[in-house]
Design a protein around this nucleic acid. Structure first.
Length: 944
RNA sequence: GCAGGGAUGGCGGAGUCUGGUCAAUCGCGCAAGGCUUAGGACCUUGUGCCUUAGGGCUGCGAGAGUUCAAAUCUCUCUCCCUGCACCA
């Protein structure tokens, strides 16, 4: 049969919509709310979105069949800066972008001019999403749809921030950000050329006081723990420096760095100095109080840190080699031996020569062979080794690992005001803003943060996480790690769409922060709308009542002007739905959204409404390639769905893999899937050719398979192993039906029961196709309202399944034997005349069962003498499947004999031999009779 | 740098937690045969190496160890992927 996917999709989507089955209201039933992370609407939906929404939809449909009252709503994310960025580029008439919009996104040319308005862009793509998700037939309650700048929703976001502040979870402070000095704006990854994430790194500037003055040298360093080994400072004599007034003290800084540092601290130039003027000054090491000279170092870069570095010749090959070269040219430099402050933990002797020299020597360095490559290599090696296994030699942190001591020493230095923090960009190359300016680090003052480091909050989250169901389970450790590590997160932003930040109306709420507890809004939005509630009336008291029940209803009603009836209704809806939630998202959101989702829900709501379950699916690949953010590589959901139909996409994207694996979408695969659908349809349409009659063993086999399938599929669905579930139900059933027919199974009732069960179980994954199959099977009701099948032990007959397996194995063995013996010399030019299959005697069955009752081979073996172990293990291992053998306890020699007799016709056909003789071992004269095993009849072939 | 994940046939990918059911589910590809006017689809069989009877050998990134037994447990090494925050 040829299936018209478009037609059946439209037909059943219409029927479902008319039934209002997906419009869910609180009831007596057990409830669950299924939500998927709301999509950001700056582009049309692509097939990556399909995976997350499809997964949620499969689960929603499955849970409905399991008897749950399921709510599956959807919302759209408009908040943030990217949409604004697009609008700006349209205004700037960016042809690259406009061309992509027209050719890739299929935006009509006439619409482009309207896209100078970010709100128009957001609404445009939101509409596309809605259309597309509807066309996919997702079981969404469309009455509850909203977007993140909906005025009603904004009121809830505001309330959330009042709440966070009341709870003490908001803090204010300084915060380093990537900054464009040209546009005067913070820059993130999508604001830079080549989408480079500005990597901000903290380093320490250690203050060395100049002797006899009040000026300081500030040395920016990654390794403050080496301070006790400092012998001198280096400045670049060829570089211009400035003496500047910093916060309360004066310091020498390379002129190049004055401007960038001014974005991090107060800085005022007092006078200009040449690098060469700084030479021969004397500084004081703040840790050891030693006097140390300032020496020339031409390797010092003027555009990093402060242009002044400290010299640790024992541990820094650059410092060591520079000193040696200076010494060689007759300049007075600190004399060795240079003091080591770090040793490797695998050696307790402190070496005579400093490690820097040892590492240089390894690479044949000498004063005459002083190439910067060698020094570079030695530096890398030494830093790596010391970072890995370095241990402090002396001082307060003696014997502590270097990597641990580093932070402690840094903090000590800062606390004692002997150092300050300096932020640098750690990217390998210079980061440029899209406007072309170089990105620097700016410290933003009075920035608001959500303090995810709050001890009590974090403890609550950790404790709650341990009670949550997480799929795949292996993500749990990732959640734990991130929760452990997450601290403050900036929560306001100067630009973008969104809700005004309540405590600084100049700013808007950062766009991930506004979408953490929004799922609660689904439970009340439809009520607010139908009661015509205005945004103005959604005062904080409203949410306090509806979500937390923390104020009196009469008071709220008076304060907001909302009727007590509506308030009560809203509260009841929240209480009903928010108790049990399943959150669906991609693993890429684990690091931010999902963590914030847990934190904010736990922080704001009462314990019984905290999230119960999170499902994170892996990526989606297209023809083996990761889909990239760049416009050209994404695959439009609309196009593939129009081509193949939504169920084929579901089968390929969701049904072909488990939740934790990347799914690979290929056109070849979808086409094959479509053909398999037709095969399935053909089987159903041919059912009328069969009749219902008395049951035969093979009928019991099919029932038994169905029963096993129900058990397996249920387990797989529960654990989100959709790939395994689909595999077993779809491909498994096709081959089982084939086997059943091959074995002369022809009972219409049995086949109908089997296929009906399978179609039911496949329907969450292939809703439209299965609905069509269901009606083809003669049902007048809608499949979506059916219950998930329950396993029924009366249908299970393990012994028939085992007997069937023995038959199959035997056929395969016979084929093998025929292939081999036909090549034998004495059989040349002869034909196979007879096959004898000899069934093992009952005593063998008994013996096996006795062995098998031990269950584990290792248990049996533990009773065996050491010297016999190998022999016994080998003997036992010939029973290829000891666990399967358990089922043999239900089979006797006689049963198996009769079963083979009954299957004789089938075996004849399969091995293509008309003369097959089934014998009992005890009655057989055959020389090979004794080789018969319970699960492997002995085979004897005769050639004539 | 820090953290996490991974390495299995021509390919995608099961199996690893709980060692023996594993020459390795399933699918793709490939080969032969059937069906067909032809092609596609579909069906059957085969697809590491050897083998004159259902057997043997090799094999799951490399090396070592534990065990009667290792893809699976332990240790070392090599290579690959992902994330690192104010950004959706």
């Amino acid at each position: 049969m040829v299936i018209d996917y478009k037609k059946i999709e439209e037909k059943w989507q219409k029927a479902w919509a008319e039934s209002t089955f997906f419009e869910s209201e609180p009831s007596e039933k057990k409830e669950i709310m299924v939500t998927a992370a709301m999509p950001y609407v700056n582009s049309p939906p692509h097939i990556g979105h399909f995976r997350t929404y499809g997964t949620a939809d499969v689960y929603a449909r499955y849970m409905r069949m399991r008897g749950y009252n399921v709510l599956f709503p959807v919302a759209f994310h408009k908040t943030g800066t990217p949409i604004l960025g697009i609008a700006k580029r349209i205004i700037a008439n960016d042809q690259d972008l406009i061309n992509d919009f027209i050719s890739v996104y299929k935006v009509d040319k006439s619409v482009i001019p309207k896209m100078v308005d970010p709100y128009f862009i957001a609404e445009y793509f939101k509409k596309e999403f809605e259309r597309e998700l509807k066309a996919c037939g997702f079981s969404i309650d469309w009455r509850r749809t909203f977007d993140s700048i909906d005025p009603l929703f904004s009121k809830m976001v505001e309330w959330q921030f009042y709440k966070l502040k009341d709870l003490g979870f908001l803090t204010q402070g300084a915060h380093p950000v990537g900054w464009c000095t040209n546009e005067n704006n913070a820059v993130g990854q999508h604001d830079t050329k080549g989408d480079m994430q500005p990597e901000i790194e903290k380093i320490v500037g250690i203050k060395f006081k100049e002797k006899d003055t009040n000026n300081f040298f500030i040395c920016a360093t990654f390794r403050p723990e080496t301070i006790d080994g400092v012998t001198n400072l280096f400045v670049n004599p060829d570089v211009e420096y400035s003496l500047v007034e910093l916060d309360g003290f004066r310091a020498y800084v390379s002129r190049d760095m004055v401007a960038p540092l001014s974005y991090q601290m107060g800085i005022k130039i007092i006078e200009e100095v040449k690098g060469s003027d700084l030479l021969n000054k004397v500084a004081i090491n703040p840790s050891t109080n030693e006097n140390i000279p300032v020496l020339p170092g031409r390797f010092v870069k003027p555009d990093f840190g402060t242009g002044v570095v400290m010299s640790v010749p024992a541990h820094a090959p650059f410092d060591y080699s520079t000193l040696k070269v200076l010494e060689n040219s007759g300049i007075d430099v600190p004399k060795g031996p240079y003091k080591s402050v770090i040793r490797m933990d695998n050696s307790n002797k402190s070496d005579d020569e400093p490690p820097a020299f040892a590492y240089l020597k390894k690479h044949n360095w000498s004063i005459d062979n002083n190439s910067s490559e060698i020094v570079e290599i030695a530096t890398k090696e030494l830093y790596k080794d010391e970072a890995h296994s370095g241990v402090m030699i002396s001082g307060k942190y003696a014997n502590m690992k270097e990597s641990e001591a580093r932070n402690l020493i840094r903090n000590d230095l800062i606390e004692s005001k002997n150092a300050l923090l300096i932020y640098v960009l750690a990217n390998d190359s210079v980061v440029k803003c899209r406007c072309g300016a170089t990105v620097i680090v700016k410290v933003v003052e009075d920035q608001w943060f959500i303090n995810y480091g709050d001890k009590k909050w974090k403890d609550n989250v950790i404790a709650h996480l341990s009670t949550m169901k997480l799929y795949p389970e292996k993500t749990r450790i990732t959640y734990q790690r991130i929760i452990d590590w997450i601290e403050e997160r900036a929560t306001e932003r100067a630009e973008g769409l969104g809700t005004k930040f309540p405590f600084n109306k100049e700013h808007i709420i950062e766009s991930l922060s506004d979408s953490t507890i929004y799922t609660a809004f689904y439970t009340i939005i439809n009520i607010l709308r139908s009661a015509n509630i205005s945004p103005e009336s959604l005062k904080p008291e409203f949410f306090d009542y509806v979500f937390n029940g923390s104020v009196e209803i009469e008071f709220v009603s008076k304060a907001t002007g909302i009727s007590a009836y509506v308030l009560k209704h809203a509260r009841e809806s929240y209480e009903y739905w928010y108790k049990n939630t399943s959150r669906h998202s991609g693993t890429d959101l684990l690091y931010n959204h999902l963590i914030m989702y847990i934190f904010n829900n736990v922080g704001i709501f009462k314990k019984e409404y905290w999230p119960k379950q999170i499902v994170a699916n892996a990526l989606l690949m297209y023809n083996g390639q990761k889909m990239s953010k760049s416009l050209r590589n994404t695959v439009s959901l609309h196009n593939v769905r129009e081509t193949y139909g939504t169920d084929a996409l579901r089968a390929v994207i969701i049904g072909s893999v488990n939740i934790d694996s990347d799914s690979n979408f290929t056109d070849l695969f979808v086409n094959q899937m479509l053909q398999k659908f037709e095969q399935f349809g053909n089987i159903i349409s041919e059912l009328n050719g069969y009749e219902s009659k008395e049951l035969k063993p093979i009928d019991f086999w099919l029932y038994s398979r169905l029963n096993s399938k129900i058990t397996e599929a249920t387990q797989n669905m529960e654990e989100f192993r959709f790939g395994d579930a689909f595999n077993g139900l779809f491909y498994g059933s096709l081959s089982e039906i084939k086997h059943y027919v091959d074995r002369n199974g022809s009972n219409k009732l049995v086949l109908t029961d089997f296929i009906s069960g399978v179609v039911k179980m496949l329907s969450p994954m292939l809703p439209h196709v299965c609905e069509e199959f269901w009606s083809m099977l003669g049902n007048n009701n809608m499949l979506i309202k059916e219950n998930w099948p329950e396993p029924d032990n009366s249908m299970a007959s393990k012994e028939v399944e085992s007997e069937e397996k023995i038959i199959e194995d035997t056929i395969s063995d016979v084929r093998n034997a025929i292939a081999l013996t036909s090549k034998m010399e004495q059989n040349q030019k002869k034909k196979l005349s007879k096959i004898s299959l000899i069934i093992a005697d009952q005593w063998k069955f008994d013996a096996y069962n006795a062995l098998v009752s031990k269950r584990k081979l290792s248990e049996v073996l533990s009773l065996i003498d050491q010297k016999d172990k190998e022999r016994t293990a080998k003997y036992l291992s010939q029973f290829k499947n000891p666990m399967e053998l358990i089922a043999l306890k239900d089979i006797s020699s006689e049963l198996l004999y009769n079963y083979f007799k009954d299957a004789c016709k089938y075996i004849k056909k399969e091995v293509d031999c008309d003369n097959i003789n089934i014998e009992r071992e005890s009655e057989s004269q055959n020389s090979r009779a004794s080789r018969a095993l319970p699960n492997k009849p002995s085979i004897y072939l005769e050639w004539n």
